[in-house]
Design a protein around this nucleic acid. Structure first.
Lengths: 149, 149
DNA sequence: TATTGTTATACTCTATAACTATA
DNA sequence: TATAGTTATAGAGTATAACAATA
């Protein structure tokens, strides 16, 4: 009942503070969950992008991830060193790189996604109700999935 | 109706992605809202901490903000240069600094808080319903305000 | 000896500019 | 000339270690 619905002067009710610290906690849980698989949350995100839609170039993948193309280079370098993704030139336009998950990449993605699901469950645990957890995810989706409005 | 309640393989349903990008958007809106007052979101947070509870040392303030004490030094240096806060040694323990808002600091805090409220309103706008906005804030509060559980 | 504030340093994440190779 | 990938570099933000003043 003492929970505040308005921004207010209390730091712990400011949306900026809440989003930042929720993300910090999620990062901790994700890092712990993914440690056994030798990847971090951003690398999992890259692999998810590659798994869904098979982008035809590094730049396409970078755009869908919301990162710079120069950032994508380092991310893919790391994943390629771990032999989770492979790069080879596009057949018709040799400037572009086609990036694919390797067999090991697909298997790691499967396991890491399950581990990440478990980390999400832990973050949402204090909400108690599954309905509240769904509410939160949907509200964030509504806010995030539309930079143009 | 097509909105997904489960983590799933779609990047835009992962909690880590959603929290990160919600925060990025909040940061943009906050930066724009605070620009006229010459401070950023982190400095507003510092001033809020100083305004509520009057911490007796820089370290106390740093703890309540969740940042390192070395980080607090630079933050306070900036605010002191802008003459929004003042530092002077604690009377009983001269190792400590008592940090207070100046008169200009209190006025800036008042205006900047209102501007920040408006930025929050813009972020939550796509939710439509005020009830949904309250739900989101309360859910984040529940997750964040209890690192020990 | 321990604590507060400070400085120097390093590490991560990210973005900008310039280079190469292809088109 | 324009584009994809790459490299070098610099800018935030943060944390660790060491130091001075004080307890």
């Amino acid at each position: 009942m003492s929970s505040n619905d308005e921004p207010g002067v209390d730091l712990a009710t400011r949306l900026g503070y809440l989003l930042k610290h929720a993300q910090l906690r999620m990062d901790e849980l994700t890092a712990a969950a993914l440690r056994p698989y030798g990847i971090n949350g951003r690398e999992l995100a890259v692999m998810l992008v590659l798994a869904t839609g098979e982008p035809a170039s590094q730049q396409q993948a970078a755009q869908r991830l919301g990162v710079d193309r120069t950032t994508m280079v380092a991310l893919l370098d790391a994943l390629e060193t771990k032999e989770l993704v492979s790069r080879h030139p596009h057949e018709e336009d040799r400037r572009r790189n086609v990036v694919e998950l390797t067999e090991a990449g697909r298997e790691t993605l499967r396991l890491a996604t399950a581990a990440s699901d478990e980390a999400e469950r832990k973050l949402l645990e204090p909400l108690g109700s599954r309905v509240d957890a769904q509410h939160l995810r949907n509200a964030l989706r509504t806010i995030v999935v539309r930079p143009e409005t």
